[in-house]
Design a protein around this nucleic acid. Structure first.
Lengths: 188, 188
DNA sequence: TTCAAATTAGAATGGACACTCAAATACTGA
DNA sequence: TCAGTATTTGAGTGTCCATTCTAATTTGAA
């Protein structure tokens, strides 16, 4: 595995990642074979293995992209409202179409693979934490544990919405997400 | 494929279905191989193919069981409240553990297979319809379309909860489902 | 008890898959 | 231009999978 010194290698690597991303998003993990990736990228298996040690490695790269894209670092400021967080998720799903499908498909299809599972679970924890913090900011009477639990409800429900959209591209994510948000807000 | 006249055949068939159900629930579709099924059922491939035409057929049988179990025919009376429907779903998930996991895993992992996809989608439609009807019963000011949309939100969100539980068996489905229900009820 | 049919055993087949490798070609710094 | 390394090629390897087949065994009705 020579270390990509020439332009051609970098371009091929990008083509491979784009192909992998597209395939996971549209066909799921089981449809994402080396042959399919090479086909989509317009290369041959030898080239793939010149740049990646394994299929797993390419998939992990794409998953990392997806996880990074779910909540942009805006959220780190610690001043976002719940509405901001939900809106960011909705925007991600609408704009970063394929990456969003990757995120959802991996979170649940690939849940048996230990590497992927760990990565996704850790990310989910952080995500719930951020939602909980935002809830407490707007409703300080909630204990941390109460906020965590309600945040878990909301995040899981949002994932359900996102999941539905993977199956039905016309599903109006923005509308349904807003309903969940408003319902939750009306109570707290 | 001789037509199961003897007791032994029926027992073997049951063992195969139980093994398939367990494997889909715990390992997902990709872990459900003929070898694994035979292993779990304590038989050999020859016996499997004496009773089923294909692996697909066994899986479809299990999926049919799961779909039938999601909402027992109680719901057909057309007098259920939203709370009844949610409670029935929660009970299904808590009592029929493996079948519930099968339902969720198939709905999303197997979403590429045309046969499974059609079956699951059709079932989902009916399910949303029943939730919408219950909503309209308790809030007659809603138009049919409004009720349908809100029902879709709730059912998707519930599926998100159910999905989370497949990944984390300790997830408190009943509690989170109740939160969703109450939040939705508080608004309408 | 007997016999035809049901059931099981278990090796064998063919295809798809992830991955390897040696040879050919393309690139770029000197 | 040229040498040396990056990159591509495409056929090949071994493994695992679903499925098939034939011979053996078991069943139960008469």
């Amino acid at each position: 595995m020579p270390p990509m010194r020439y332009k051609a290698g970098i371009e091929t690597r990008d083509k491979i990642l784009a192909a992998t991303r597209l395939l996971i998003a549209t066909d799921g993990l089981e449809g994402t074979t080396i042959k399919a990736i090479c086909n989509e990228a317009g290369i041959l298996p030898g080239s793939f293995y010149n740049l990646f040690d394994s299929k797993e490695q390419a998939i992990l790269s794409v998953v990392r992209q997806a996880i990074d894209a779910v909540d942009p670092d805006l959220a780190h400021r610690g001043t976002d409202t719940l509405a901001d967080l939900v809106e960011a998720y909705v925007r991600f799903m609408e704009e970063d179409d394929n990456l969003a499908s990757v995120y959802i498909r991996i979170a649940f299809s690939g849940a048996n693979n230990s590497d992927l599972r760990g990565r996704v679970l850790r990310h989910h924890q952080g995500r719930v934490g951020r939602f909980a913090a935002a809830m407490q900011r707007s409703a300080p009477e909630l204990t941390t544990e109460q906020a965590e639990r309600r945040a878990e409800t909301l995040v899981s429900a949002l994932n359900g919405i996102a999941l539905h959209r993977v199956l039905d591209p016309d599903f109006d994510v923005a509308w349904h997400a807003r309903v969940l948000l408003e319902d939750a807000a009306a109570v707290t």
